[in-house]
Amino acid sequence: MSPLTEAQLRAALVNTTRSERQRMIVPDLDAIRWDRLEYLGWRDRKQPLAAYAVVEIDAAPVGIILRAPETSSRRAAMCAWCEEVGDGSDTSLLVARRAGAVGRKGNTIGTLVCSDFRCSRHVRRRPTLAETGTDDDEARAAVVERRIAGLQERVRRFVEEVRSTA
């Protein structure tokens, strides 16, 4: 993912109001390893139920605001983006208001994602022998590349669905 500025992050959000963009707390952009991210996701430290995700679509950043429910149940679940399975504290149901008029009418879409947005780290973990079928470095690298491509595609599809006004 290409490095982004605070202004670019705020401008990228497609399903927010002007006041929501102004209230958004941006993470420390200098501390981010951009070359190891397929998308940028973070929780707002001042608004614990607010989260953000930004992905590049057609070489431009597109971002969304997501909301967590006030209460959640804890049970094992798989992240819909990186497909990592964790216990109930590792994944969260996050809901995004759709962009445009349909979103202003209350239309939303939800997904289960890693609570800490560490999907990029999860897809880069060393594949097991069961995943590769062989103890070969090339086979492991191919598995990681497939995981990365899958993560990029699933996040992009979700953000495009939020952005869609149809």
Results as ranks from 00 to 15, higher is better:
W42S: 00
E84S: 12
A76K: 09
F158K: 00
D44I: 03
N15S: 05
P127W: 14
M78H: 03
E56D: 15
S72E: 15
D90G: 13
L94H: 06
E161D: 10
W34A: 10
T71W: 13
E131A: 03
S120Y: 00
L112H: 12
A141N: 03
E70T: 09
M24E: 04
I25V: 15
R67A: 12
V54F: 06
M24V: 01
A31W: 05
G86F: 05
R23C: 02
I148W: 12
P3S: 14
D58E: 15
R45T: 11
V144I: 15
C114N: 06
E138S: 13
G150Q: 04
G150R: 04
D135R: 14
R125M: 11
A31Q: 12
P69G: 04
T5N: 12
A141G: 00
T16V: 13
P127V: 11
R97C: 02
C114H: 02
R45L: 07
T132P: 12
E84G: 07
F117H: 10
E84F: 08
A141R: 06
D44L: 04
T134H: 08
L29W: 07
Q8P: 02
A99V: 01
L9S: 06
A80R: 02
V95I: 12
E153S: 13
A80I: 00
L13S: 05
T17R: 05
G110S: 14
G150P: 01
I148Q: 10
V162S: 04
E138P: 00
T108D: 07
C82S: 05
A80K: 01
W34L: 10
